[in-house]
Design a binder for these strands. Structure first.
Lengths: 197, 197
DNA sequence: ATCGCAATGTTGCCCATGTCAACATCTAAA
DNA sequence: TTTAGATGTTGACATGGGCAACATTGCGAT
């Protein structure tokens, strides 16, 4: 092999992009550098992506998939109790964000037009649905006339993660944030049992 | 006048930067374009800022100041009741974020080294302190052994704002998010009265 | 089998940007 | 008034995104 045609350049480019964006922020992220890392000319990516944004969109979509998987793995390793499962999911979410700050940013702060990326939207929604399902298990049956509780929990976990990313973390802070996530879950669950929506 | 020297270029550059970043994202934000808008050569900004990042840092710092002011204005226009004041602050926070998405991003997702920008850190902390003060008024006295509740409330409001920014909004969604913010405040307050920290 | 075409890569180019260096102009203090 | 420092300007360089023209390859119709 080793021939003119790469075989599966698209995948290779995405892989290289993952590594690159992990080392530097998504701002410094460079199409040409991705190509270099894939051992390919600076224009080869254009045969597989419309441009830089398109690559970023693919990256974001894939990252969402991985986030969902990570969350699922998280709850799989947890006790049966619904609250524990929700906590585990929340912790997994936080952990994913902290461990993949640049990709997290690509997932939420990219500028591509979402309407053109149905896959992205699907995986985005899946994350919310996932969390919402766990939440339902934690609340008294029939207590969910709206989608608000799910969005509330998601937003809180997401906010903690965002702020955790924004503040550059020392190693000890990870613990603190985990406590915060637990506190968020507990507090919201308690509050949701008392507040009318 | 109209002379070689501008008079107060630094301020003019910041102003131009505000306008520019309002029109486009902070990624597309360009030092040269800022200079152009200030009617000045592409290298003039270097006499007032170390480089692009430095300008962004100044912008972020200033934006934080404005956020805090907006929040304060928000509570000033609210009823006396502590919970109402907290709600007003939260709404102001959300509103500021939605109305200034690009600057909001600059505030939280920039890559400059925070240690070099004491002003930035000060204004950042001020936002948290502000919120925390409002929160204390809403809780039973002596019930705050930790900083967790404040961070919790902040993170939730922030998360709603971030997700609101991330999802491009239709006009009707603004209402929904405001409801969400109110729900967050109510739910967290209720929960905080029942959960041990 | 072969011919031809579409897919995939490559090279070369253009323009914009961030930043450095050298030079120009102004202002204020000595 | 002179002159040094502050402030702007012009020019240059390296790098990046993206277009166009060309090269190579593999695959399907004949």
């Amino acid at each position: 092999m080793d021939s003119y045609h790469h075989g599966n350049l698209r995948a290779a480019l995405l892989k290289a992009a993952f590594q690159l964006i992990g080392k530097i922020g998504p701002e410094a992220f460079t199409l040409r550098e991705v190509a270099r890392r894939a051992g390919v000319s600076h224009n080869a990516p254009y045969r597989h992506f419309k441009g830089k944004e398109d690559l970023l969109a693919a990256l974001a979509t894939d990252s969402f998939r991985q986030l969902n998987e990570a969350v699922i793995r998280g709850i799989a390793g947890a006790v049966e109790a619904p609250v524990e499962r929700l906590r585990a999911a929340a912790r997994a979410y936080l952990h994913f964000g902290l461990a993949n700050r640049a990709r997290f940013q690509a997932m939420f702060h990219s500028t591509f037009d979402r309407q053109e990326y149905a896959d992205y939207v699907a995986n985005y929604s899946a994350a919310l649905t996932l969390l919402d399902g766990l939440l339902v298990e934690c609340l008294p049956p029939g207590a969910l006339p709206s989608e608000i509780p799910g969005q509330l929990v998601w937003a809180s976990i997401h906010g903690i993660t965002e702020l955790g990313i924004a503040a550059r973390l020392e190693d000890g802070d990870r613990e603190r944030l985990l406590l915060l996530v637990d506190a968020a879950v507990d507090t919201l669950l308690k509050g949701l049992q008392h507040v009318r929506m």
